[in-house]
Nucleic acid binder design. Structure first.
Lengths: 339, 339
DNA sequence: CGTTTACGTGTAAACGATTACCTAGGAGGA
DNA sequence: TCCTCCTAGGTAATCGTTTACACGTAAACG
């Protein structure tokens, strides 16, 4: 690996000149520029990001903390992030929190030690007492998926509450009168908001709320709980795709009659939601756009540009109805996707 | 951010001592150690990876190049990589190749410029003429999923050929006599090997090979091709999960009779493969272990330890049979998963 | 003709760690 | 007593860049 000094020597100029040629930070005569460029070619010189990073205190790297990349929600968000980051010549370091407060802290520590310029985070904490924790972080942060209230940190979220309301109303209008919510991990802003929207939309009617843990096992428990109800809801909204899978697998295996007689709605489109019989209705979040937007905001913060504290992206509700469970169609119902 | 000098001053020692306390590279008296540790705590000092990296010429960072992280195969491999890397105090930068030679080169360039200590790669190239390209890379490389023949680069692959043979034989033993392979992108070692294994296992009987492109669209085309055959195969093996999905979706929508009358086998377990009716049989690769192993090998190479040039991990064939399509059961057949 | 102004370039000090080399004091052996 | 060896610790060079400052020349301006 050749250094900037090697290039300077070969081109017969100073390292300053070489640096300025590379970065275009100072006028350099045509002749000299040619000489330098040629020398760089010949030595196939690549400037060391380390040297530069040490001096400028920026490695052009950002951290991305996901709960779990094998969850396709996060994988798609990440692709959005990565595409934007690459355009801006940044690279992305990925860490997992696995919805664990300790893991999250550790991940953030590591990222900071690595000298990242900023961090994208789906925060596991949300309480007021945690505000301090996030506030003390010494690099710019943008939160995605989950809102960080009471903290001066920009968040990119979706209006899933509206979608929840739309979904419940959709089936209400078709005659359904008993609704349940399988809620996610308590404390997450998404859980809270979706819970409120659900309460609000379902409240004139009978409704249930079961608190899961946002993991596959939560869905398994929910299935058991569901099957034990003397009177069962006819519409079940699941607040997260992992729980939905646990629920469906368990129902399919042990309580097939529950599965076939209940309308299920879940978050986040995945292939299997349409392959299951009956198929699941879905609240689709703009995952890629979440990533792109969050990355944009982070890069702006890194450049010290002011950014809005809350960005809300729209969801799309896709109804997949089934003759048995859908309820009675509306006069103008085509049972296709709705917006 | 405080530096090692601040710590040294506060503890009343030299930077050398602080450094040695941090790294345990030299004997330090108990007293002094306590002083230093306390000073670090008080300033909550975190050593800069940049400074260290510049000096030691290692950022403790590795690059991970996937075709596409939204493909759960790569996501799971990545988790394996990340867990091992974290244990060894390395962080991981992720890039995508999208099976594109240009993207791959770019990704590798960027990683090297960022000063990674090594690269994990699912190489898009494989020909002899490409050997040179990979050989010229100036940091240690380990290839995963795909074998890099004729190049002095360690590979971690699976014995999917054995699994392919096992799968075909499984259905041959149940009376099937017409087999097809939907092969992946040409040039990948996996495509070649699985093709050979398929040929070998199916060749006494009538068989077809359709070349897809390892993407969703390849499956769509394959579905059309399949439906157009005057005599259709009764067992279809798909060489990659994206194509399998394209195939199933298209069949389900346009040619349901083909779907219900054909045994489908695919690579890599995903939730939807068991939700589809009829369910798909699957060749399960040890994805997490691939990641762990590849990471291990890379870290060893970084430490200049010799490693084997080829590591092969075993696959598992999971048969999911359906009364209509399975063929006649063997005398002792329980239709469960086989090893 | 003296004074700006502009332009092109070089010198050398950072950035934050690691580490080769050196110093000094005390213990132990001959 | 002298020499050797061990232990504990300091000094300062170094890694590869960027960049503040200085310098010299030539053109432009009054």
């Amino acid at each position: 690996m050749s250094t900037i000094r090697d290039v300077a020597k070969r081109a017969g100029v100073s390292t300053a000149t070489v640096s300025h040629v590379i970065n275009g930070t100072r006028a350099v005569s045509g002749q000299t520029r040619v000489l330098v460029v040629q020398a760089m070619k010949e030595l196939n010189f690549v400037p060391s990001a380390l040297g530069r990073g040490l001096r400028t205190n920026s490695l052009k790297t950002v951290g991305f903390v996901a709960a779990d990349l094998t969850n396709s929600f996060f994988a798609h968000v990440f692709r959005g992030v990565e595409s934007r980051a690459r355009e801006a010549n940044y690279t992305v370091i990925v860490s997992h929190s696995d919805e664990d407060v300790g893991h999250e802290s550790e991940a953030i520590q590591n990222l900071i030690a690595k000298g990242v310029d900023g961090i994208l985070l789906a925060p596991v904490r949300s309480g007021l007492e945690d505000a301090e924790f996030y506030q003390e972080i010494s690099v710019p942060i943008v939160s995605y998926d989950r809102r960080l209230t009471a903290v001066n940190i920009p968040s990119v979220v979706t209006n899933s509450q509206d979608a929840v309301r739309e979904a419940i109303n959709f089936f209400k209008a078709r005659g359904h009168e008993r609704f349940a919510l399988i809620a996610g991990k308590q404390g997450l802003s998404t859980t809270l908001e979706r819970g409120q929207a659900f309460e609000q939309a379902a409240s004139p009617h009978r409704h249930w709320v079961f608190y899961g843990d946002s993991r596959y096992e939560g869905g398994v428990h929910a299935a058991r709980w569901l099957s034990e109800q003397p009177v069962r809801p006819s519409v079940v909204l699941v607040g997260n795709n992992l729980m939905a899978m646990g629920l469906v697998v368990t129902l399919q295996e042990h309580y097939p009659e529950v599965l076939s007689s209940t309308v299920l709605i879940t978050m986040d489109e995945e292939p299997w939601t349409s392959f299951v019989r009956p198929p699941l209705s879905v609240i689709v979040q703009p995952t890629h756009e979440i990533g792109v937007t969050a990355a944009d905001l982070l890069l702006q913060r890194i450049r010290h540009t002011d950014v809005p504290l809350l960005t809300t992206l729209p969801c799309r509700f896709v109804a997949r109805t089934d003759p048995v469970t859908a309820g009675h169609p509306l006069p103008d119902d085509e049972s296709g996707p709705t917006s």
